[in-house]
């Protein structure tokens, strides 16, 4: 997947003749229009609304400049929400990536049971998040949920996983890792197919063992895939909401409340559109920063060119 060559090609063709340029513009127009109407315009609208006080006390919005943003600075729940979001990303993204990479390497060989394991690991991805969350909600039930039942077999304590602030966020993180590892694994499997056998054969001739080969060949050559997976994982993490809606509603005492759920709460439960828009602007800026970082990093992780 060499992206740089594609871009260069486009640039050349674009400059060649006006007719080709017109054709390109026409071909792009439908997606550009959709992007404009459903992406860029709503972003502008969100920025606009974020400058107004618009809640139950102000049914007719009142211009307030940056008041919504400064109020967020004094909002203890917002601080907690951001902390939870960061904790969630630190706790899920690297772990999911590592597990996915190791699983992909293990399942890249062809054993008799490989297709079965690939299927088994991919199947959580196919499940809708809402159903998966409902199943995990039941598994985490104190006493008779399967997690506590298994713990009890080994004399472990009975834990109210989702009902204690100390464990609720970790419980959600575990469930999320389970859900997304299979998805990331597919990307790594595709990445591994691209590497081919040659470097490994050369390394074997030079006397490198499997661990050395993994560290010195697999990991670096998978860097473009890793970057891609990292971005997907980051964006997903910022947008996660289904699990929270089903499993904890952001509780206990906001211990699992995260950015998108907080936006949802402000907009639809508390009908505070101004605050929700301000939060959305923050989310958009974060996602844009992630996108820009990715574009910058993308040029540095390719070994092929």
């Amino acid at each position: 997947m060499p992206s740089s060559t594609g871009q260069k090609g486009q640039k050349k063709r674009g400059g060649k003749s006006g007719r080709a340029g017109l054709r390109a513009a026409l071909l792009l127009a439908p997606s550009a229009l959709i992007l404009l109407i459903f992406t860029l315009w709503p972003m502008v609208v969100a920025v606009y609304h974020s400058l107004f006080l618009s809640d139950n006390a102000h049914p007719v919005p009142v211009f307030a400049g940056l008041a919504n943003f400064t109020a967020l600075g004094r909002d203890p729940v917002f601080v907690q929400v951001m902390r939870n979001t960061v904790l969630f990303i630190v706790g899920t993204v690297p772990v999911s990536m590592l597990i996915a990479m190791v699983l992909a390497v293990a399942l890249n060989r062809r054993y008799r049971l490989t297709p079965f394991f690939r299927l088994a690991l991919f199947h959580p991805v196919v499940l809708p998040m809402v159903s998966a969350a409902s199943i995990w909600l039941f598994m985490y039930t104190p006493d008779y949920g399967i997690v506590d039942k298994v713990l009890a077999l080994f004399g472990g304590p009975q834990i109210n996983w989702l009902g204690e602030p100390g464990t609720a966020l970790s419980a959600i993180m575990l469930m999320t890792i389970w859900k997304q590892v299979g998805y990331f694994m597919i990307f790594y499997l595709a990445g591994l197919q691209n590497i081919g056998q040659d470097p490994y054969e050369a390394a074997a001739v030079d006397g490198a063992g499997p661990v050395k080969a993994f560290r010195s060949i697999t990991v670096p050559l998978l860097m473009p895939t890793s970057l891609f997976v990292f971005i997907i994982a980051m964006v997903d993490a910022f947008q996660m909401i289904d699990q929270l809606y089903v499993m904890t509603q952001g509780g206990p005492s906001n211990g699992t409340n995260m950015l998108l759920y907080y936006i949802y709460q402000q907009a639809f439960a508390f009908s505070n559109l101004g605050k929700a828009s301000a939060l959305s602007v923050i989310l958009i800026v974060i996602l844009l920063v992630v996108a820009v970082l990715q574009t910058l990093a993308d040029k540095r992780v390719h070994y092929e060119s």
């Binding site: 997947m1 060499p2 992206s3 060559t5 594609g6 871009q7 992007l35 459903f38 992406t39 709503p42 972003m43 609208v45 969100a46 609304h49 473009p224 891609f228 971005i231 997907i232 964006v235 910022f238 947008q239 998108l260 936006i263 949802y264 907009a267 559109l273 929700a276 828009s277 959305s280 989310l283 958009i284 996602l287 844009l288 992630v290 996108a291 990715q294 574009t295 993308d298």
Partner: peptide, 25 residues
Amino acid sequence: MKKLPRHMMKVLVGAMALTLLLSGC
């Protein structure tokens, strides 16, 4: 070749869904 537009899309689609939600369309 598809890589860059795809994640840009993902980011933008996310932002889009969100703002759409908020604007109540």
